[in-house]
């Protein structure tokens, strides 16, 4: 199980994107890299903003990078930004990405018409994030037994 956020988690996520036939179909003509920004929430174990980068091209994930600088991350064609807790909600399927966008819970930067054309691919990226066996940093070391008191 990979901790979120971590390089291990991102690597597994990128691998699943690259191998997903559903994503390949939905994003067959997609061209453009994406930065995700996990905004800091020190009380939840994310003391600083974390930038990660995915090189998405024609339904494949050609590369990924964890912990790049803001200056590097800003060069991506698209940027999706939200606090750590929102990303956790997305990964846990508690937040629908389109609703999140409408509510302003997810901030997008980049050519919006392109993103709207590829809503199916965006949903698939969320599905794939949800498929990664994940332990969240703010739940580290807890187990259902401990939680049940």
């Amino acid at each position: 199980m990979a901790e979120f956020p971590s390089e291990e988690w991102l690597t597994e996520y990128a691998r699943r994107i690259d191998e997903s036939l559903q994503y390949r179909d939905a994003a067959a003509t997609w061209e453009g890299d994406i930065s995700y920004v996990f905004e800091a929430e020190p009380d939840k174990g994310v003391p600083e903003e974390i930038w990660v980068w995915l090189d998405l091209w024609h339904g494949r994930c050609r590369a990924s990078r964890y912990g790049l600088s803001e200056e590097e991350g800003q060069k991506a064609r698209f940027i999706i930004r939200a606090p750590y807790s929102r990303w956790k909600e997305l990964i846990n399927r508690q937040l629908d990405p389109i609703k999140g966008m409408m509510q302003g819970k997810l901030k997008l930067k980049g050519d919006l018409p392109t993103i709207v054309r590829y809503v199916k691919a965006a949903n698939e990226l969320v599905n794939l994030a949800a498929s990664v066996p994940t332990e969240f940093v703010d739940e580290r070391g807890t187990s259902p037994e401990e939680g049940s008191g």
């Binding site: 999140g100 966008m101 409408m102 509510q103 302003g104 919006l112 018409p113 709207v116």
Partner: peptide
């Protein structure tokens, strides 16, 4: 601070008319 739908619609309108 535009809400989410205002920001989305504004960005779409601006990008579409520019393109």
């Amino acid at each position: 601070e535009p809400n989410g739908i205002a920001a989305l619609l504004g960005a779409l309108l601006e990008a579409n008319v520019a393109a």
